[in-house]
Design a protein around this nucleic acid. Structure first.
Length: 418
DNA sequence: TTTTGTTGTG
């Protein structure tokens, strides 16, 4: 018995330092051999790692869970949480439904928080309403975390009105709830509303944190609200946000670039201590939109030297920059390099940009070839781009081909939609 | 065990 107790503690210590499934399997095997795998503390920790850790494994978690004769609320929560951020969030919803047949388990605040996250990700509007009712039945209508998640789930399911209603009816709100509702408006493209809610927040005497600043700058960027953006910049500087949070710098670069203050964008970018793909992409787009193709190419080379890997958005920014400055040769070269060297598969937007770029340069034959050899030959957007280039260059032959494809693809799309 | 954030043509 003494030996067993020590072993249980030893297993728990091992689990504390576990950082991979490989190690977890070994620890699990040891626990099974010593008959400790179903001890509540051991079983709970094993399940927690598999279900919720980044290095975990959800199928292994399900296997462990199936061995419990009467799982507790915390066990259900681990699985619901794990699936809520997985590619199959609907499993969280199914688990929640099964939970009601389990005698020992009763949903708690954490259950609803994770479940609502799954509803957000799975796009389950009906389930949001159902969960909303259950939150009242189980006694959590004044839990700030649950209600913030509920509000967010409504917004992610397309109803900002319901999100706002939940927010308004919350008996207590914290800075996270405010940041969340502002983000809901921002995400829905309702930027003026987002700024209005921010004013309400200020009127209540609440301060801003890094989350508020980032989402606020995004709305400023969309509205071209430079004055507020500058105020947020100063506030961020005074509060040391810029030094410790790369997202604040990124949002500032984007805001300045979209508001037309390219020099300011560049200044913030140059002063950033750390830069990620978002930082480089925002700056690339800023240069591209304002017609600085050569500078964008230079910046892209610096990005490579810095060791940050370019992604789909980087190449789109780069191609746009080339297109806007008539750098068709350079653009084509980057377009080829993106898949051959960088293993980034171009999507329809990249092809569209190349067609546009070739079209502007009058290279209509080459643009036609590009569409024909692409996986997006059925996409009317590409043919529309080619047709407008044909209009500019008065090329009837290729114009006719484009129009034919446009009619064909539109008809096909209409058929498949009906 | 639970909540919030940035980049993508015309």
């Amino acid at each position: 018995m003494y030996q067993r107790n020590i072993s249980e503690e030893a297993i728990l210590t091992l689990l504390q330092g576990c950082n991979s499934m490989c190690r977890l399997r070994k620890i699990h095997a040891q626990a099974v051999i010593h008959g400790l795998d179903l001890r509540p503390s051991v079983a709970g920790k094993l399940l927690c790692f598999c279900a919720t850790s980044a290095a975990g494994d959800l199928s292994y978690a399900v296997h462990l869970f199936s061995r419990f004769s009467s799982p507790l609320t915390s066990h259900w929560n681990y699985l619901i949480r794990g699936f809520s951020v997985s590619p199959s969030p609907t499993f969280s919803i199914s688990l929640y439904n099964y939970m009601f047949y389990s005698p020992l388990a009763r949903p708690d605040a954490a259950t609803f928080s994770f479940l609502l996250k799954a509803c957000s990700k799975a796009v389950a509007a009906g389930k949001c309403r159902e969960v909303h009712g259950s939150i009242f039945r189980f006694g959590f209508p004044s839990n700030v975390i649950v209600c913030t998640n509920l509000s967010r789930a409504y917004a992610d399911n397309g109803s900002v009105e319901d999100a706002r209603k939940v927010f308004d009816e919350m008996p207590e709100r914290d800075i996270v709830s405010w940041n969340s509702i502002i983000a809901c408006y921002c995400k829905a493209g309702l930027h003026i509303e987002a700024l209005k809610v921010f004013e309400e927040m200020r009127a209540k005497g609440l301060g801003l944190d890094e989350f508020t600043v980032v989402v606020l700058l995004s709305s400023c960027a969309h509205l071209g609200a430079l004055e507020l953006g500058v105020w947020v910049h100063r506030f961020s500087q005074e509060n040391g946000f810029l030094g410790r949070n790369v997202l604040v710098g990124n949002a500032l670069v984007d805001m300045y670039a979209k508001c037309g203050s390219l020099e300011q964008a560049r200044q913030v970018f140059d002063r950033m201590i750390k830069r990620d793909a978002f930082s480089w992409n925002s700056m690339l787009f800023g240069l591209g939109i304002h017609g600085h193709g050569k500078e964008a190419i230079l910046l892209f080379r610096q990005m490579l030297l810095s060791g940050v890997k370019p992604n789909l958005v980087s190449f789109l920014g780069l191609l746009m920059a080339c297109s806007h400055q008539g750098l068709a040769e350079e653009g084509l070269e980057f377009f080829h390099l993106m898949s051959s060297k960088f293993h980034v598969k171009p999507d329809a937007k990249h092809y569209c940009c190349v067609v546009d770029m070739l079209g502007r340069a009058g290279r209509l034959e080459r643009a036609l070839e590009c569409i024909k050899s692409s996986p997006f030959v059925g996409d009317p957007v590409l043919w529309r781009a080619l047709l407008s280039a044909c209009k500019i260059h008065k090329n009837i032959e290729i114009g006719e081909i484009s129009l034919g494809h446009l009619i064909e693809t539109s008809a096909y799309n209409a058929d498949s939609a009906g």
